[in-house]
Computed example of a mutant assay.
Amino acid sequence: MRFLFLVLFGLGGCAVLVALGLWQLDRMAWKRGVIADIEARLEAAPTALPEAPDPEADRLRAVTVEGAVGEGRLRVFGTWRGGGAGHRVVVPLETPAEAGGRRILVDLGVSPEGTEPIPARLLVTGNLDWPAESGGAIPDPDGDLWFGRDVPAMAAALGTEPVMVVARTVSPAGIPVRPAPVGTAGIPDNHLGYAVQWFGLALVWAGMTAFLGWRMTRPTA
């Protein structure tokens, strides 16, 4: 009876651990599909700004916009891996009448203070995004410092459409803001390592079960 219980306990434990490893492999395949889809959107040939961008259908759509930098800017404080602390600079961009006469938000990228001068006209290639970040305005003398990007709230503050282009390249070159484009570097893909751990634990479990079974068959003194 004890030997039967050991076999069932060993097989059950191995089955659970192997199932967890297989689940991690499934998660890995799903995650890599998501990353591939995002990268395909990011690397697609840029198009003109859609007339009515949809936050779901047009998320990460590559676009090119050109226009005059409007009055006002918002600074979003944050920290970046390898880049220390700084501010994202978000400005209103007004496209010419022949391009629809739009007024939208453009996230130009990161600078230490976020107060450096910006040229009056810009050509921006980037991706549409509606970041889901917590935060908001905080009291300061200028009222321009934020802790997170909130597209509807920022649009209301600067009088623009609730549309944001996160820059990948900006012309003219040399403006004192470093683009911080949308990417996949922040999406963790550790599932293969987790799967190896679960399969390793299954082997250890099986080995311990076999060892205990061997000990049970040994004659006692």
Rank of each mutant, 00 (worst) to 15 (best):
D140T: 14
R178Q: 06
I187A: 04
A15S: 15
D189G: 05
V166K: 04
R178M: 00
T209Y: 11
M1N: 07
V177S: 13
G143I: 07
G207S: 04
V110Q: 11
E94H: 07
V204N: 01
P219R: 15
F5W: 11
D37K: 10
A44H: 05
D58L: 10
E98F: 11
A40C: 01
L17V: 09
E56G: 02
L201F: 14
L17G: 05
M216L: 14
T220P: 00
E116G: 09
W80T: 12
V151S: 00
E66N: 10
R218P: 00
P53Y: 06
A173S: 14
V65D: 10
A97N: 05
G101T: 13
G159Y: 01
V151I: 07
T115A: 10
W23V: 12
V124R: 09
A206D: 01
G33H: 15
G193P: 01
A132K: 11
A57H: 08
P162H: 08
L122V: 13
E43C: 02
A85K: 01
G10D: 15
D26W: 04
E113H: 08
P119S: 04
R218D: 02
A155Y: 10
V177E: 13
G213I: 03
G70I: 11
F9H: 14
P46R: 06
P219H: 15
L122F: 13
V69N: 03
A132W: 03
F9P: 08
G82E: 01
A62H: 08
G72K: 07
A221E: 14
A44V: 09
R121I: 08
T184W: 03
G109Y: 04
E94Y: 04
D107Y: 08
W214F: 09
R27C: 09
I38G: 00
V65L: 08
W80N: 06
G21A: 09
E51A: 15
V165K: 05
P139G: 07
V7M: 13
A36Y: 02
A155R: 08
P162L: 10
L8N: 10
L74W: 03
A137P: 10
T160M: 05
L192I: 15
V69E: 02
K31R: 13
D142G: 09
P176A: 11
A195M: 10
G10F: 12
H87P: 01
L17H: 07
N190Y: 13
V89H: 04
